[in-house]
């Protein structure tokens, strides 16, 4: 086989087959493929990804310090408040998962205030992967190299989603953004914890099949309500999905089928529910009242 085609795939089934044939992780496959695809050395790609991880971590920290409102008035200060609750010793979800929610909030609050973030895969879903990886770093002592590798796990699967379905809310609704982010984060968690490519795909599948149908109906057209809380809450969703896969639970459908289902649902989704702010929550009376005079649409 031509050297440049050894690591080539277009479905997650093919991706898994290569991983199992070569006895490598999804992250390893993605890095080998990327070096061939981009013509840029593996080391240079790794350093670029490490840079992205550091920007992500920074966006979490920055968001946890925000006390002021965003320009729209729809977000700001909640990440800090959730973190305080997490550390109170009385948090319903326990300290770690509550911090996870705070981290997801933090990135989106940073984003709403024109701070620097990394699109993973988009800005509206940029909180989920950083929240999960930052928490793994803090609670499991996982090092930066392993977490950088995990970002390649995430992109290995994310590329198939972007290629076969979509990652833009305007095309496929929120399932394409938060659904995809939650899906690739779940896989990243599994590989960061030493799980197999098959378990990573199971985790990704659990996350994706349970976000199908999510619409994109942001209030006033701002990436804030429900986006900020959704990033916090779906970071937990990724943790749950990873946990199910690590418990050895089988999702009963393949990841490719979940991706095709997401595409099918996205294609049937009315334009009003795909980032136009013309339906759903965006036109609810309380939303309209909040946005009077400041609406983006």
């Amino acid at each position: 086989m031509n050297d440049s085609l050894v690591y080539d795939y277009e479905t997650t089934a093919e991706m898994l087959a290569i991983c199992e044939r070569e006895s490598i992780s999804i992250s390893e496959l993605t890095q080998r493929r990327e070096a061939i695809f981009s013509g840029i050395s593996r080391e240079e790609n790794f350093e670029k990804m490490r840079g992205h991880f550091r920007t992500m971590r920074q966006s979490v920290r920055r968001g946890l310090e925000i006390v002021s409102s965003s320009p729209s008035g729809l977000s700001g200060g909640d990440a800090k408040k959730i973190l305080e609750y997490a550390n109170s010793g009385n948090a319903l979800l326990g300290v770690d998962l509550t911090r996870l929610v705070a981290y997801g909030y933090a990135v989106l609050e940073t984003n709403a205030q024109f701070g620097k973030i990394v699109a993973t895969p988009t800005a509206g879903s940029a909180g989920i992967v950083p929240a999960c990886l930052t928490l793994l770093e803090e609670t499991r002592g996982i090092d930066e190299n392993t977490l950088t590798n995990a970002l390649f796990t995430a992109s290995g699967i994310g590329m198939v989603i972007a290629d076969k379905a979509f990652i833009a809310g305007a095309q496929g609704g929120c399932q394409a953004e938060v659904g995809s982010a939650s899906c690739i984060a779940a896989a990243a968690i599994v590989e960061a914890l030493g799980g197999t490519p098959r378990q990573a795909c199971a985790a990704a599948t659990f996350a994706l099949i349970n976000t199908l149908g999510l619409v994109c109906d942001p209030i006033g057209g701002f990436v804030e309500v429900p986006c900020v809380s959704r990033n916090g809450m779906f970071a937990v969703h990724s943790y749950l999905a990873a946990g199910l896969a690590l418990a050895g639970i089988c999702p009963r459908v393949t990841l490719d089928d979940a991706i095709f289902a997401m595409r099918d649902i996205g294609r049937r989704m009315p334009a009003e529910l795909r980032e136009t702010s013309k339906g759903g929550l965006a036109i609810s009376p309380s939303a309209c009242a909040r946005c009077r005079g400041t609406s983006a649409s």
């Binding site: 992205h52 620097k116 994310g158 590329m159």
Partner: peptide, 26 residues
């Protein structure tokens, strides 16, 4: 012929100023 014409950094990245990847960074 390569199967997918897409980079890992199209999924993770860009580093950007928000609020939206498609509506701001794009």
């Amino acid at each position: 012929m390569r199967a997918m014409n897409i980079s890992a950094f199209d999924v993770i990245g860009p580093a950007m100023v928000g609020p939206s990847s498609s509506h701001t960074a794009g």
